[in-house]
């Protein structure tokens, strides 16, 4: 199969880590699965978010169908279609789901995109080798915000 997620996660992480307002993965506060404030301290960019939904670090459409992205081939069926996500969820809830879906949906298959510990046999990306050193989350704080901004555009009502 194709790699679910790849890309320059490390570089992106290093870039946003410089921002003093960034909330580190271990410090994120969830309330009923939701996260109230921006993780990067800045607003998200929906256009950047749309890119992350495709291949690369996010690859959300590996598991979700999104009509708005129907120009891209091969949407998966593992999770629910994301059309109308913004009608069903608040911004804070979407942020919580993308940061760590397992808080909102216990035991879900959806990966935790803003988490750095608690993994079993963590690998070095897709090399199959053991990971060494500091762990970067799958998406940086700003990338989470960008994805959330994009999800907020998915309205049907």
């Amino acid at each position: 199969m194709k790699h679910l997620f790849s890309g320059a996660v490390l570089a992106a992480f290093a870039a946003t880590a410089a921002n003093a307002d960034t909330v580190a993965p271990k410090d994120v506060v969830f309330e009923d699965g939701a996260v109230a404030a921006s993780l990067s301290g800045a607003a998200g960019n929906a256009q950047e978010g749309a890119k992350i939904m495709n291949k690369g670090a996010g690859n959300c459409i590996a598991c979700h169908e999104v009509s708005d992205l129907s120009n891209l081939p091969f949407h998966g069926e593992i999770g629910p279609p994301l059309d109308g996500a913004a009608d069903r969820w608040s911004e804070a809830e979407l942020r919580g789901i993308v940061a760590n879906a397992k808080v909102m949906f216990e035991g879900t298959m959806m990966p935790s995109f803003y988490k750095t510990d608690g993994f079993v046999r963590l690998g070095d990306a897709y090399t199959g080798k053991a990971h060494e050193g500091e762990v970067a989350p799958l998406l940086s704080a700003q990338q989470i915000e960008d994805v959330v901004a994009y999800l907020m555009t998915l309205k049907e009502e």
Partner: peptide, 9 residues
Amino acid sequence: CVRDTRAHT
């Protein structure tokens, strides 16, 4: 398959 979960195989 294990490698594709970003794991140490």
